[in-house]
């Protein structure tokens, strides 16, 4: 059961890593690449704190083996902002709408929202709520998160550009 050499493309950067095949993507992102924005809240795929995008789809990185991401594109929360001094419209909306409290669920929430808006650029409130089915939050009661995602959708469509 030797280590496997894999190539991960994370936030556009290419990494070659030797990993044990039983390690999860969440673990490799956090421990090897030190991208600790990906949080682990339950390690069972129930809470969504570890959500990342794999080839553009939101997935639970705690239930994904790192070797399965070999040669695939991974987007973590660290890779969403277009530049160091700019936020992605979803991130900006989370800040402005008070959608962040303790912040532990936030990276997963933001990426779940990204997946949602990529597939449905003008979601209804009910669709936003359904789009967050895999993300638990204990601080905000979700309503400000829902507002923020709605506002981000509008901003993205108004400016006509997606970061």
């Amino acid at each position: 059961m030797a280590k496997r050499t894999i190539e991960l493309i994370v936030n556009g950067d290419r990494y070659e890593l030797a990993v044990d095949p039983w390690r999860t993507l969440a673990n490799v992102l956090r421990e090897d690449l030190r991208l600790t924005g990906t949080k682990v809240g339950c390690a069972q795929g129930d809470c969504g704190a570890c959500t990342v995008l794999l080839d553009g789809r939101s997935i639970s990185s705690c239930l994904t083996l790192a070797v399965e991401a070999h040669q695939r594109e991974v987007t973590t929360i660290e890779g969403l902002a277009p530049s160091p001094d700019e936020l992605h419209p979803i991130q900006e909306a989370f800040v402005q709408h008070g959608a962040v409290q303790c912040g532990y669920c936030t990276p997963g929430m933001v990426l779940a929202a990204k997946h949602l808006l990529d597939n449905n650029p003008a979601p209804s409130e009910a669709e936003i709520r359904a789009g967050l089915s895999g993300n638990l939050c204990r601080c905000t009661g979700y309503n400000k998160i829902v507002d923020a995602i709605g506002a981000a959708a509008k901003k993205i469509s108004d400016t006509g550009k997606e970061a």
Binding site: G45, S60, A112, S133, G134
Partner: peptide, 9 residues
């Protein structure tokens, strides 16, 4: 069923 992420996987 389940959650968005689980359905994506």
């Amino acid at each position: 069923m389940a959650t968005v992420q689980i359905r994506n996987m």
